[in-house]
Write a protein that binds this DNA or RNA. Structure first.
Length: 451
DNA sequence: AAAAAAC
């Protein structure tokens, strides 16, 4: 008999709310952490991407909030605005039918609007560090009676760029608070450093060696700087992702790549820190609803972002380090779904990639891609709107050495995963997603912008 | 050296 959320100490109300959303069984990290968090214990929790860390801290926090008391009891700090928005949305779902007030405090947004909400008595704040400090300095936010503090993406929060802000926030909270750290990557130095903020934390680490998930197929394609764009287009035409995130090293490169893809007719848009806040939120919304299928992003989207239907993550530029790689590819293959991560590598990237590879001890499947085909051929076919299977067959033949059996293999992997009694997946695929009518997962083809 | 994060 499987363990239920109620067995872990979660209220019946929350449990039935989860059930309505198709979530019935806790994941391993939820099973281990929730009972301890409910007791008020400090926790450092490392668990792979997409295994339910957010709910692991949100559920006990929501249950521990006393709606009759009019002060901030929970605080969640995240490294990006997008993540703060996402977690706020999750928390609001869990607050349904209760009088719990939640505030998202992040930059680029009207301060007055956030202030108005504050006047109403906030119980839970989800914030990015800068704006939170701003509110604190203006004496808008008072953390003197805080019960629980979460550092989401803890290693990123504790990294150089954030540590000072973080300390400034933490000194304004009670010593007796509960402190929780969550991330898929917690380097041992960070783990050590973090315990400064904590009292006898329960340390949860990833069991075994796999920091990345088996559900994510990892592929490397060799190319050169000159051929990179054509290689990418060829790869997109072959795989036809339903939703894909393409990561670039810099904002400029993301802008340029998005432009080039749009010119070729791909259904894409860009996400990075140089955009206005309203544009950022607009882009995320379009991507979540599959209005755009390709998101060209900087590492702003590397952590925590949970969009259902992301079949592919593409590293157009090799990530800086293993942590970035792990978080980027973790945008796919979430809650038991399959995903594909493709990394384009040029000769000068070889060393960086070797370091990453060694660090995560994962076997990349190296797949060479032949010379790009004649420009425009494949896209022209798609603009016709024709999808003749004959033509597809012909195309596959031409690319014989570039995994022509991609789809068949994918199917095989999927059914294999489900039937294998040897090592059943720890992560249950979600039941039917009748609450999300937006997409048809069978249709993995690009839609091409009319232009 | 890049990215993120306040006005």
């Amino acid at each position: 008999m499987a363990i239920s959320f109620k067995d872990l100490g979660i209220s019946k109300e929350l449990e039935s709310l989860l059930k309505k959303n198709g979530i019935t069984e806790p994941t391993p990290i939820q099973e281990k952490s929730i009972p301890e968090i409910l007791k008020g214990r400090d926790v450092v929790a490392q668990a792979q991407t997409g295994t339910g860390k957010t709910l692991a801290f949100l559920l006990p926090i929501m249950d521990r909030i006393d709606a009759n008391k009019d002060f901030i009891q929970g605080l969640i700090i995240t490294p990006t605005r997008e993540l703060a928005i996402q977690i706020t949305a999750e928390a609001k779902k869990l607050a349904a039918g209760k009088e719990i007030n939640i505030l998202a405090a992040y930059g680029g947004q009207d301060v007055a609007q956030q202030l108005r909400k504050l006047k109403r008595g906030i119980h839970l704040v989800v914030a990015t560090p800068g704006r939170l400090l701003d509110h604190m300095e203006r004496q808008n936010i008072e953390l003197g009676r805080l019960k629980s503090l979460v550092l989401d993406e803890a290693d990123e929060m504790i990294s150089m760029g954030f540590i000072k802000d973080l300390e400034a926030i933490i000194v304004k909270t009670p010593k007796a608070r509960q402190t929780m750290l969550f991330s898929a990557t917690i380097p041992s130095e960070v783990r050590k450093l973090a315990t400064r903020f904590m009292r006898d934390p329960l340390q949860l680490e990833i069991e075994g060696k796999n920091v990345t998930l088996d559900e994510i197929e990892q592929v490397v394609i060799e190319t050169t700087d000159r051929k990179k764009f054509d290689t990418l287009c060829q790869m997109l035409d072959e795989h036809r992702p339903y939703l894909a995130i393409i990561f670039c090293r810099t904002k400029i490169r993301a802008i340029k790549l998005n432009y080039d893809l749009a010119v070729k007719g791909y259904n894409c848009d860009e996400l990075h820190g140089d955009l206005s806040q309203s544009k950022r939120e607009r882009v995320m919304k379009s991507f979540k609803s599959a209005k755009i299928q390709i998101l060209v992003a900087t590492d702003i989207a590397a952590r925590g972002i949970d969009v259902e239907g992301v079949t592919h993550v593409i590293n157009y530029d090799v990530p800086e380090d293993a942590e970035s790689y792990i978080h980027r590819i973790g945008r796919t293959g979430r809650i038991g779904n399959l995903g594909t991560a493709v990394t384009l590598v040029t000769p000068k990237d070889a060393d960086t990639l070797a370091v990453i590879e060694r660090k995560i001890k994962s076997d990349f499947k190296l797949k060479n891609i032949p010379k790009p085909k004649v420009k425009g051929e494949n896209r022209a076919e798609k603009r016709d709107g024709r999808k003749s299977s004959k033509k597809a067959g012909k195309d596959q033949g031409k690319r014989a050495d570039y995994n022509p059996n991609y789809r068949a293999e994918r199917r095989a992997r999927r059914s294999g995963d489900n039937q294998s009694s040897e090592a059943p997946s720890k992560h249950r695929p979600r039941k039917s997603k009748n609450d999300s009518p937006k997409k048809n997962p069978k249709d993995y083809r690009h839609t091409v912008k009319k232009r």
